[in-house]
Amino acid sequence: MPDPTTSLPSPETDPRFHDRWLRHIPASDGDGWVLLVGVVHDHPSSLYRAAETVRRLKPSVLALELPQLGMPLFERHADRADSPPRYGGEMAAALSERGESRAVGIDAPNRRFVRELAGYVGSERPPLETVAGVLAGATPILRHALRYRVAAMLDARTHLRLVPDVPREFDVSADDPPEAQAEDEYRQLSRSRSLLGAVELPPDVLDLDRLREATMAARLRSLRSSGSVVAIVGQDHLEAVEKRVHGP
Rank of each mutant, 00 (worst) to 15 (best):
L95T: 03
E97D: 01
E100S: 13
S101M: 14
S101C: 10
A103Q: 01
A103S: 11
V104D: 12
D107L: 06
P109D: 05
N110C: 15
N110F: 05
N110L: 07
R112H: 00
R112C: 10
F113H: 10
F113A: 08
R115K: 15
R115T: 15
L117H: 06
A118Y: 11
Y120C: 14
R125D: 15
R125P: 06
P126K: 08
P127C: 12
L128W: 14
L128A: 15
E129V: 15
V131P: 12
V131R: 08
A132R: 14
G133V: 08
L135C: 14
A136E: 15
A136Q: 11
A136H: 07
G137F: 13
G137T: 12
A138Y: 06
A138V: 13
T139V: 11
I141W: 07
H144T: 13
H144D: 14
A145H: 08
A145T: 09
L146M: 12
L146N: 03
L146C: 07
V150Y: 04
A151L: 10
L154F: 08
D155A: 10
A156L: 03
A156G: 02
A156Q: 11
T158E: 14
L160S: 12
L160V: 12
L160D: 10
R161T: 15
R161K: 13
V163N: 02
V166R: 13
P167D: 07
P167N: 10
P167H: 04
R168S: 13
E169I: 01
F170V: 02
D171F: 03
A174N: 11
A174Y: 09
A174R: 07
D175E: 05
D175F: 01
P178S: 03
P178E: 02
Q181V: 00
A182M: 04
E183N: 01
E185G: 00
E185V: 01
R187D: 01
Q188K: 07
L189K: 01
L189W: 12
S190K: 09
R191T: 11
S192K: 07
S192R: 13
R193W: 00
L195K: 13
L196I: 04
L196K: 07
G197K: 03
V199N: 00
D204K: 02
D204G: 05
D207K: 07
D207F: 07
L208W: 11
R210C: 02
L211Q: 08
R212V: 02
E213M: 11
R219W: 03
L220A: 01
S222I: 02
L223I: 00
L223K: 02
S228P: 05
S228A: 10
S228Y: 00
V229P: 03
V230L: 09
I232T: 07
G234D: 14
D236N: 06
H237N: 06
H237A: 06
H237P: 11
H237E: 06
E239Q: 14
V241M: 03
